[in-house]
Nucleic acid binder design. Sequence first.
DNA 1: CGATCAGTTGAGAATGGTCAAATTCGGTGG
DNA 2: CCACCGAATTTGACCATTCTCAACTGATCG
Lengths: 243, 243
Amino acid sequence: MLNESSPLTRKLSTFVALSDADLGTLARFDRRRRNFLPGHEMIHEGQTGSSAFVLSKGWACSYKLLPDGERQIVDFQIPGDFLGLRSILFRTSDHSIEAVTRIEASEVLPSDILDAFTRAPRLATAVLWAASRDEAMVVEHLVNLGRRSAEERMAHFLLELGARLTLVGLGDRKGYDCPLTQYHLADVLGLSAVHVNRVLRHLREEGLVTFRQGHVIFDDFARLKTLAAFDTAYLDQEGPLLP
Amino acid sequence: MLNESSPLTRKLSTFVALSDADLGTLARFDRRRRNFLPGHEMIHEGQTGSSAFVLSKGWACSYKLLPDGERQIVDFQIPGDFLGLRSILFRTSDHSIEAVTRIEASEVLPSDILDAFTRAPRLATAVLWAASRDEAMVVEHLVNLGRRSAEERMAHFLLELGARLTLVGLGDRKGYDCPLTQYHLADVLGLSAVHVNRVLRHLREEGLVTFRQGHVIFDDFARLKTLAAFDTAYLDQEGPLLP
DNA sequence: CGATCAGTTGAGAATGGTCAAATTCGGTGG
DNA sequence: CCACCGAATTTGACCATTCTCAACTGATCG
């Protein structure tokens, strides 16, 4: 019916088959277009009454700051991702979100979500599923930080990003474009920027993966997957669950 | 109306005001009582078609195993907690859940959830909120692992557990009963069991907190909070958001 | 009364951090 | 086109947190 569906529609449709009415309700999520410049803080930790967004172009990252000024990045958001869903369910946002690149997004008001749930229960299930999928990724990051070496962490992270980008047509098993700095990598992997640099050099010298000038190139995809013990199960990419 | 409400009802009611109809639908979650012995694996990673549970008594833990046999515990579940929600939304469970103590729980079938969403949209919002709250805790653990020292991690973890147990009447600012071993602590904090032991000793010698024989005693609650930079915002304990 | 499991302690090794100083790179203004 | 600037990256030297291995204690249980 729709040849040109939005990234969000495409994503939710992989979980539940949405009716035309559902699609209509979902289309209301896409009315308020917003643009942001790199570095702009879209959602601030502690802020109340914030909106959510659906990302259509560009990269963002969600993070928390510690009192001593250190930063832990929780996840990156790429086109098609929901952003700040927790911020509208909680009274105050428990994390910040910042634009990494120039961003195009649609603003979703709390009332949009609550309305949608009343009109379209199947949509509620789909949104819950999307939220669960995000949580699954956070859980995988947790395992990454808790039980893997710096090198395994890096390999796993670059592979995960590749898998996610491939799902939305922005990457393949050769590699992908990546606007992140080594500081971003340090803050998401719980390492120092210096060590990130050394790990990247080692992976490059081993002929596994090259991270350079905004590009990630998988030099040996299979061996990298083995090193990281990477298993895509948690990304749950299969077809619709509900008829 | 209900003097003796279930832990789950009490929890969801703090987020949305539930109608009698909602409460009736929710009561259907509480029909299939199950008991489990310590060590029983209630949900197995990779398992398909699993159920979820609502915990009424005892402790459980959700975890992932790595190929090399290492374990990362993602979270502990205490009475009132939902357990395995992701397992029913995903086709295959992406994590395992094990009983830490003897457990009493109610089994929730996937159809219960989906029915509930159709009948009671407000309930859907409440469940989404509960899921988001769980995710907020996982995110806090992530920050813990990525950016805090072993000692801060331990302090933060023991405080969080205390705050959660206090919410359901199983602890106060003096301390609480805790059935975990030092191996559990090691696996949740991403440390070795040996180092956990040393950290506990140091915290005890500093007069901050005592972990011993199944009891956690806060010897100096205020100083412990300072050390951990503990902020309860992410537990979002305030009253109902929706009228 | 062994057996087993949780906890405890010490010694040495390793992974990753800190500090400090180059070097490269992509602009930007002259 | 070139000099220059700031940000990102790279490298070395040294340090500290945490791990590993190994041994030992103490409690609990059949």
